[in-house]
Each structure stands twice: as C-alpha cells, then as structure tokens.
Simulated scan of single mutants.
Amino acid sequence: MSKKESSIVIIDDENDILSMLEKYLTREGGYKVRTFNNPVTAISSISKDTDLVLLDIMMPQMNGLDVLPKLLEKNPDVKVLMMTAYSTLDKVLNAHRKGATNYVMKPFSSLNELGNKIEDMLKD
C-alpha cells in the first residue's frame, strides 16, 4: 500500500476490529482514519471529504444495510466496503442494490489483501 491522502471512516461495533484496522490503515497505508462504534454518531460525522467507509453489517444499534443509504445521502460519491461475518447471498445483493461498492468477509483472511482491495477501490 502506498501513502494516500484519502480519508477512511470505519464503522463497527467491535472495538478490537476498529483498533486493528485503524492501526493498519494509518501505519501501512498512510490514510486518514476515523473510527466509530456507534453508527448513528458515524452518520452525522460523514462529510463530502470522506472517500471510503468500511461498514459492518451486523451491529446492535443499527443494521449496516440501514446505515448505507443514510451515508450515501450525505455523500453520494463515497465508496462503501461492507464487512460481515454473517454472509448470505441475499445480504450481498441487498448491499449492492443499496449502493455498496464492495464486500468483504470477517475475519479477514489477510490485512494485506484487505489493504489491496481498499487501495483498488480508492483508485477508481
């Protein structure tokens, strides 16, 4: 991963995931990263300068599929990478219909693979 000026927001109810991804993306990618364990707070913090959101689907406060259209309403150009440990074809299709750019399973097979996927998404 090369240094970027891209701004990434991570929304996940698991603090361990938030911490791990923030450290990796900041250190290895040079990205500006903000994390939120509450999707409601995250929605109000999304701005036009947010380039990418990593969004967990299953969260207790609000389902990621319900968060997605609210994020896109605030920033229609933001790319969204959905994350979940509970994948079904229906969820994948629903996420794409609602505007998700890509999808990844948790636990991550490799942080480097995830980093490459993020870098590719930010090139487009």
Rank of each mutant, 00 (worst) to 15 (best):
M1A: 07
S2T: 15
K3Q: 07
S6A: 13
S7E: 11
S7N: 15
S7W: 00
I8Q: 02
I11W: 09
I11D: 01
I11C: 02
D12S: 06
D12Q: 04
D12F: 14
D12K: 04
D12Y: 14
D13M: 09
D13Q: 06
E14L: 05
E14G: 01
N15C: 04
D16L: 09
I17F: 09
I17M: 09
S19E: 14
L21M: 10
L21D: 06
K23S: 11
K23C: 03
Y24T: 02
Y24Q: 03
T26S: 08
T26W: 02
E28H: 03
G29R: 01
G30S: 05
Y31F: 13
K32N: 12
V33N: 08
R34Y: 08
T35A: 01
F36H: 05
N37Y: 08
N38I: 11
N38D: 14
P39K: 00
P39A: 06
V40M: 10
T41S: 15
T41D: 15
T41Q: 15
A42Y: 14
I43L: 08
I43A: 06
S44T: 09
S44Y: 01
I46S: 03
S47C: 06
S47F: 02
S47R: 08
K48H: 12
D49I: 00
T50W: 02
D51W: 00
L52C: 08
L52T: 07
V53M: 05
V53A: 07
V53S: 03
L54G: 06
L54H: 07
L55P: 01
D56Y: 15
D56M: 10
D56C: 06
I57H: 05
M58H: 12
P60E: 05
P60S: 06
Q61H: 07
M62C: 04
N63D: 15
G64V: 12
L65Y: 05
V67G: 03
P69A: 01
K70T: 09
L71W: 05
L71P: 02
L72T: 09
E73K: 11
E73Y: 08
N75E: 07
P76W: 01
P76I: 14
D77Y: 00
V78L: 03
K79S: 11
K79W: 01
V80H: 02
L81S: 02
L81R: 02
M82E: 06
M83F: 10
M83C: 06
T84W: 13
A85T: 09
Y86P: 00
Y86H: 14
Y86V: 05
Y86A: 05
S87T: 15
T88F: 05
T88N: 06
L89Y: 04
L89W: 04
D90F: 04
V92H: 01
L93G: 06
L93K: 13
L93A: 09
N94Y: 01
N94W: 01
A95E: 08
K98V: 15
K98F: 10
K98T: 13
K98L: 15
A100Y: 00
N102V: 14
Y103K: 12
Y103E: 10
M105S: 13
K106C: 08
K106D: 04
K106I: 08
K106T: 12
P107A: 13
F108A: 01
F108G: 03
S109F: 11
S110K: 03
L111A: 09
L111H: 12
L114D: 11
L114T: 07
L114F: 15
L114H: 10
K117W: 00
K117I: 11
I118H: 08
I118G: 10
E119W: 00
E119L: 03
E119V: 07
D120Y: 02
L122N: 10
K123Q: 13
D124L: 11
